[in-house]
Design a protein around this nucleic acid. Structure first.
Lengths: 117, 117
DNA sequence: CATATATTTAAGTAATCACTTAAATGTCAA
DNA sequence: TTGACATTTAAGTGATTACTTAAATATATG
């Protein structure tokens, strides 16, 4: 029947960056615009697979491309990452200062009395 | 400047937060420790599905739980989000200031001459 | 022109995904 | 002890994933 779309509609930035190869692609483009062949060199997967990953990134708005002859030059346009950055930002206090210490302490406690596993 | 993201081995924090329901779970726990039934109330999916999502978050270290009677109290332990925050951080300059403007300008240019689509 | 180069798209596959319902586990309370 | 409650685990399903190879498209070069 009807399933409620609880959260973000596709294409989802969080999904786009979930894949390590796609993050690596973005990082490679972080040093500047590059053609696909130059990107492919850094991976063990096929040209087609890289092209598909670039499609996903492009659908999420994270990269753009321009034509130069038969080449396609990709560059990173990561403004959409702001959503991710902002979302994680609200948790920053947990890994900075007291709350993190408290968290680690509580986790140790749980590990010790192995309750609920 | 740009730090390469290696294709992470599972359990992967980026994967854990890729799902909107899981992010929503974390956000609900952000206001404090809660039993599963209290979390389930905010979703249209089954108790079991929520429990499974909590398992994924727990495997990624993003939440922890403790037993209290027959209840399991979950709380957010989002230190691992630091990896995500740090990764996005390196792109921050793109949505702040000139680079973003340049990016938008270039995208408009591409949209106009529809090259390579 | 024909052929090489650069890339994308199509089609197929195995693995993983997010869910479901049902059964299992553990705890509380009469 | 019996039964309700709180949650997890098991088993199954359809959709989506990340890849593959092959074919298609488009451009450059001899």
């Amino acid at each position: 029947m009807f399933v409620m779309a609880t959260t973000t509609t596709f294409p989802d930035v969080f999904h786009a960056i979930a894949d390590g190869n796609r993050r690596k692609l973005m990082d490679l483009l972080g040093t500047g615009e590059k053609p696909v062949q130059e990107l492919v060199r850094h991976f063990d997967i096929s040209f087609a697979a890289i092209s598909q990953h670039l499609n996903v990134l492009r659908a999420a708005g994270l990269v753009s491309r321009r034509a130069e002859g038969r080449k396609r030059l990709y560059r990173v346009t990561p403004t959409a990452l702001r959503e991710v950055h902002d979302w994680t930002e609200q948790y920053r206090e947990f890994w900075q200062g007291r709350l993190d210490e408290l968290g680690r302490y509580l986790e140790r406690q749980e590990a010790e009395d192995k309750k609920g596993d």
